[in-house]
Write a protein that binds this DNA or RNA. Structure first.
Lengths: 217, 217
DNA sequence: TTTACGTATACCGTATACAGTACTCGATAG
DNA sequence: CTATCGAGTACTGTATACGGTATACGTAAA
């Protein structure tokens, strides 16, 4: 007798609300101008305010929403300073991941990374959205390979904040190919086994992306 | 007419509960064996379950509490793997802070750091607790000096998890002086202006602490 | 027309109520 | 004595109710 377990862990409504808002932000269904109000949202979802409340607070704590005056929340906006700091945060996390990978220098992992990069860079459509997703997937793969749950947590923390503005993807089409092509050389650096070199390669890679970003804005 | 503003921003009960639990954990008033139950806690505080609930979820999200079976929460325990990963997380964050400081190489900041370190290392009592606080203060000062809110956020995130076990302070008395003395050389490294060197110096400093930690456990 | 003020309302925080789920533990059958 | 079942209970998640605070808005005075 082999039944599939249907015990779903923690099926709380708040989680679903959280997800829905997250994707709504990602799709642009919620813009930075919109004011998100507990009561209104609860009514839309046809549930009570309690779970909505919980989801909103979580999103606030993660820096995705911010309290609006007149009550309610808004999508958090970023000034140039904060964007720079986000990139610096990325450097800290991802450079150390690269460093760890270089120290380990595991052929299997490196090959796997190459495959992931190749697959991700093979864009079916050349939109900014597609580029963003590919770029994020590649960088996430690197952090995941480092096998450190905190690095991964911080990675997601940083990138999730950008979902509203797609901060890390505001790059003109002309720059796409150049930036994408650089990823393989990250693995080259890792494969050298020189951990400092790998870390610095990652930093310059991210910093290059930042330069394109500010040149655009 | 000059009255003091009594508008207190966001004076929610949940925040107070959060703080209380946090310090209770820090003081050891809540041990990892204790099971924290919403109803019970609400009764202790003489408030309803709603704000307690909110505080507990926040503590869970921050990785300080974890759901216990039979309901309720308990203090999150760490295996050796997770402790190593915490130290790696520290390396990522603090090494990059050191790197940024070396790049800036601002005499005023460096001098300020030296002063902070000297003040913190001047322990009035030679307890592990005192050592922990001094060490944390010093490292926090470095990250604060980097002036990056995300690095600081991650720093707090990591260190707060350790408050239960005081993970980062389980060092025998004999090692205290050695480990404390090393902090000034961190500033030396920053002052060299060589950013990679500063980063690596921080990594070895933290790794040394980790070695002491595992030798102890 | 502008300013001051009172009232309505929008929204929130907290308390309470209710229903469902998972564990405990004792009783009963083997 | 061990295993199975069922009632009780321990907690939770969600809904609802209530009171308070800040904003919006209309009205009257200058």
């Amino acid at each position: 007798m082999a039944f599939k377990s249907l015990a779903q862990p923690r099926k709380r409504l708040a989680d679903q609300v959280y997800e829905q808002i997250m994707t709504a932000i990602h799709n642009g269904d919620i813009t930075p101008d919109d004011r998100i109000v507990q009561e209104k949202l609860a009514e839309d979802f046809c549930i009570s305010r309690t779970p909505v409340r919980e989801a909103l607070f979580r999103l606030e704590q993660e820096g995705i929403l911010t309290v609006a005056r007149r009550g309610g929340f808004r999508i958090r906006q970023f000034g140039q300073d904060e964007i720079r700091e986000l990139y610096e945060g990325r450097c800290a996390v991802e450079a150390f991941a690269a460093r760890m990978l270089a120290q380990r220098n595991d052929k299997e992992i490196n090959d796997q990374l190459r495959q992931t990069i190749a697959a991700a860079e093979n864009l079916t459509e050349e939109t900014v959205e597609a580029y963003y997703n590919a770029n994020r997937a590649i960088h996430k793969a690197i952090v995941e390979a480092s096998a450190n749950r905190y690095l991964l947590e911080f990675f997601e923390n940083i990138w999730n904040r950008s979902s509203s503005l797609a901060i890390f993807s505001t790059i003109r089409d002309t720059d796409l190919s150049a930036s994408l092509g650089d990823h393989m050389s990250l693995v080259d650096a890792i494969e050298s086994g020189n951990d400092s070199f790998a870390a610095e390669k990652m930093i310059t890679h991210i910093t290059d992306g930042y330069r394109l970003q500010i040149k655009d804005g």
